[in-house]
């Protein structure tokens, strides 16, 4: 049966008919065509589908679209400033070569922003533990860790 779900994505109100079983990530990718949010697994392990929902990083592959009713969601497309200027965390990933193929990157950045909000000056170990839910196969995490440590400081400084 189709149900209607309404929420905000990247500041814009959206409303869509979905099947009850439709996952939030399917709605975001297939209906809203926000394809920056990726699907890398089917067991909520890889974190490529991570989006910000009501200010917290969540895995949109393990939520029903219906659960987003009334929520405010930010996808990777909504992270940079409206004029295209990168968010400090995005800029840190670029500066420190924290991405290679780019597929895990949106989830990494969203999760890192959520983490950095509560950890303005994290240690290497803090960052590694915070990445428990995000898999990368390209970088060996080395530069992702450096990016997040630098991005967290930059976010704190920009406050």
């Amino acid at each position: 049966m189709a149900v209607r779900v309404s929420f905000k994505v990247n500041g814009k109100s959206v409303s869509s008919e979905v099947e009850e079983r439709t996952l939030l990530v399917s709605l975001i990718r297939d209906t809203l065509r926000l394809t920056g949010t990726h699907v890398g697994c089917d067991t909520a392990q890889c974190g490529a589908c991570t989006v910000m929902m009501n200010g917290r990083a969540v895995k949109s592959c393990s939520m029903l679209a219906m659960q987003a009713e009334g929520a405010e969601i930010t996808t990777i497309e909504g992270v940079a400033k409206p004029d295209g200027t990168l968010h400090p965390m995005q800029a840190a990933f670029k500066e420190h070569h924290g991405l290679q193929c780019g597929f895990c990157t949106p989830g990494m950045v969203i999760n890192a922003i959520d983490f950095a909000k509560g950890n303005p000056n994290p240690t290497e170990q803090d960052v590694r533990e915070a990445l428990e839910g995000n898999l990368c196969r390209c970088t060996g995490y080395h530069n992702i860790v450096k990016s997040i440590m630098a991005g967290a400081k930059a976010m704190a400084a920009a406050k």
Binding site: T75, L99, G102
Partner: peptide
């Protein structure tokens, strides 16, 4: 720094499933 990073960092990459 890499020329390709901006599109990957802003969700503008275009992978096959996209």
């Amino acid at each position: 720094p890499r020329k390709e990073d901006y599109r990957f960092l802003t969700g503008a990459g275009r992978y096959t499933d996209d």
